[in-house]
């Protein structure tokens, strides 16, 4: 039997916010009945303030999947979309007092449903957002994308294929993609080791950040008429500023975290902040 925390069991026994909101402002559906767990998240969002007024879930899955879904709804009600989008699977697991390693994928499902709902919200509003290019499905048994795997590796400091399986389920079915996952892990960590923020001089930092902005970030922002500029670097931070269409776009802070910050953190290893001036 799993060692579930008392708090998790309580959220399983008496889950809060079960159900579906009528005429929701956002819907996130992830997982499937075939894969063994699935979550439908519906949100009511204040159009002025972008605050999540209400959240309800319906979950097919094990006890920790139900508890994670309920925890997620509790965590996001009252937050703005932008604040909510910063919630990670670790936050969900921590809220429940921790989850067994093999059940971490339940918390990842919560995070992904929220991402899907936010995506759905922006699409409905007609706000174009830049989405990642790593939507390739790596694990075909559980329908897990490269993006999800990379996110789990980064957030949870995963180093082995088994770690990735525990957190995302990827590789836990037929096992055919395990070689692929191993390569993703290797590439992720080897890329990081080339640029260690703490070991670089300020001149090196400026050169590398400028290079990443020019090659990886600005070409994508320019498609929507915006771009981003490097203002300064310090011992532990990179300071940037949006210009053009980005400086007035309501989705710019989400672009900042999902594209700018993400790309820099992908390419440069070590502890540092990415700040928007």
């Amino acid at each position: 039997m799993w060692s579930y925390t008392e708090k998790m069991m309580e959220y399983f026994r008496n889950p809060k916010n079960v159900g579906e909101i009528e005429n929701p402002d956002a819907v996130g559906e992830v997982g499937s009945i075939v894969c063994g767990d699935a979550l439908k998240l519906t949100l009511k969002i204040d159009p002025e303030t972008h605050v999540i007024i209400d959240a309800k879930f319906k979950t097919f899955g094990c006890a920790s999947a139900i508890a994670s879904s309920s925890a997620l709804t509790e965590m996001i009600i009252g937050k703005t979309i932008e604040e909510a989008s910063k919630i990670t699977n670790q936050d969900i697991a921590n809220f429940l007092g921790g989850l067994p390693e093999q059940k971490m994928h339940c918390s990842v499902m919560g995070m992904e449903a929220l991402e899907a709902a936010i995506e759905n919200y922006y699409t409905k509003k007609g706000i174009k957002r830049i989405v990642g290019e790593k939507d390739r499905i790596v694990c075909k048994c559980f329908n897990v994308t490269e993006k999800s795997i990379l996110k789990a590796i980064e957030l949870n400091n995963l180093k082995s294929v088994n770690d990735v399986t525990h957190f995302t389920k990827a590789g836990g079915g037929c096992g055919k993609c395990r070689g692929d996952i191993e390569k993703i892990i290797k590439d992720f960590w080897s890329g990081k080791e080339k640029f260690d923020f703490s070991k670089m001089t300020n001149v090196e930092k400026i050169k590398i950040v400028e290079k990443i902005l020019n090659e990886d970030i600005n070409p994508r922002l320019k498609e929507d008429g915006g771009f981003i500029e490097l203002i300064d670097v310090s011992e532990d931070s990179i300071k940037l500023k949006f210009l053009g269409a980005c400086s007035t776009c309501p989705a710019s802070s989400s672009t900042f975290s999902s594209v700018v910050e993400k790309t820099l953190k992908d390419k440069i290893f070590g502890k540092f902040k990415v700040e928007l001036m």
């Binding site: 559906e29 499937s32 009945i33 075939v34 439908k40 329908n143």
Partner: peptide, 9 residues
């Protein structure tokens, strides 16, 4: 039943 399409192939 959502999520099936990707599972069918």
């Amino acid at each position: 039943i959502f999520g099936i399409d990707s599972c069918n192939n």
